[in-house]
Design a protein around this nucleic acid. Structure first.
Lengths: 233, 233
DNA sequence: ATGTAATAACTGGTTAACCAGTTTGGGTTG
DNA sequence: CAACCCAAACTGGTTAACCAGTTATTACAT
């Protein structure tokens, strides 16, 4: 565990702190200044580490009072911190698999619950996608907006949040690969249309399978271009 | 949009900045100091806002160089920022719905791909859960560890990350409600056992349905106790 | 010995000054 | 006039001092 990031190494030290000294859930841990001195670092890094742990629900920071361990019991807490430390460096396959699951679920919910306005927004996004394709422009943006409109129509803000978190990661991993704008996007257009129609007529099962096939096809397309891209200088 | 959080209001101002002035993707935006002066705030808050936007993939901060807009096109960027601003204040129903979807998927993958070691870990977690139940101890911790073991067995780190993010949120929303340790947990034990057996024999469909029923039952139990809890002074 | 009030120590939050690189533009030199 | 070089003006990163509010302690009056 030779982590170079000072923040992560502090998180690791806090993990060991919680292991060795018997801290009960809800208890207060030493202050930022004390931790900084004990870990032989500055307060700023300790602060960042604590805020990251608070973001993931390990700690609760109460202004002018102190830092408190959340109500989870020690063993689960330890596993949680280990997960946080392993967050970085996601595999593209894992990302796509998780995203597919979320997108399929979104499509199903959108078909079940989508309001008139939701339908209009999805149609608008699809029209923009279609127009971009006809202008033979780069359509990654419109593609995303179509999917965003669907997850918004699901009415589940948590889903929306999760997909919003995953998508940029996929872009970051995938940004090197240029997609073939001709045949590839023509298929995407057809697939989008199938999804759109299923949602509009409220057919949840059809929407789910259409989305799943779209994501699978998209994944295959990307993997193809990726292997092509590797051969280029 | 009268957001009281200074960080979020700065993010909103950056959103408008990207709307009005024609910033191309990949372009550099003004420095922290300039933004602080323009938004009439201090550099620290601008810094936090920028780092939040970087975390979600909107910006890229390059030390000693500047702040750059990511390669997403303007319209998708705008939608992304809007999502970020709406992240807080999750509904418990949305949280449980999203978690159910992820857990069911995890169980299915665990049944398909789980290794011998994965199986052993899930069995251990289940044994600990069973023992805690026999000791009539509080078993929320062991419950979580069982679910964590399953998602770990799915082999998908992204899924693991997403569930790890959602679970504390649910605990935070739900921590007021005490569960009835007698009849409630006896049902949980049965349900866990069904999930475990399905995964061990590699039956993906059975694992998925068992997990779905467990999550539904768990949700009903919580809603019950929640409505009971509301009537108490 | 006890209850209370004043105070000192400590909390996380915030700010401003400082740091080491990077870029840039003007002045100098061929 | 062009090429180069060096210094000044930036960049984000980091640190330390300061702030307002909380808590524990201590001293004093009862």
């Amino acid at each position: 565990m030779n982590n170079s990031d000072p923040v992560d190494s502090i998180i690791h030290e806090i993990q060991e702190l919680l292991r060795n000294e018997t801290f009960q859930p809800g208890m207060r841990i030493p202050s930022e200044r004390v931790l900084a001195e004990r870990f032989n670092t500055t307060r700023g890094y300790v602060r960042k580490a604590l805020q990251k742990l608070e973001f993931y629900g390990v700690l609760e920071i109460r202004p002018q009072k102190g830092i408190y361990i959340s109500a989870i019991r020690p063993m689960a807490l330890d596993a949680l911190i280990t997960n946080i430390l392993n967050f970085d460096a996601f595999d593209l396959g894992d990302l796509m698999e998780a995203r597919t699951n979320l997108e399929v679920f979104s499509a199903r919910l959108a078909a079940l619950r989508g309001t008139e306005e939701d339908h209009r927004r999805i149609q608008d996004a699809h029209a923009a996608f279609e127009k971009a394709f006809e202008d033979s422009r780069y359509t990654l943006e419109e593609d995303h907006l179509f999917h965003l409109a669907i997850v918004k129509a699901s009415g589940n803000k948590v889903l929306q949040s999760l997909i919003t978190q995953i998508t940029p990661e996929i872009i970051a991993v995938n940004k090197h690969f240029k997609e073939d704008p001709d045949k590839v996007l023509k298929n995407s257009l057809k697939e989008h249309k199938r999804i759109l129609n299923a949602i509009l007529r409220g057919d949840a099962a059809a929407a789910a399978t259409a989305m799943e096939q779209h994501m699978d096809a998209s994944r295959e397309r990307r993997l193809d271009t990726s292997s092509e891209g590797e051969t280029t200088p």
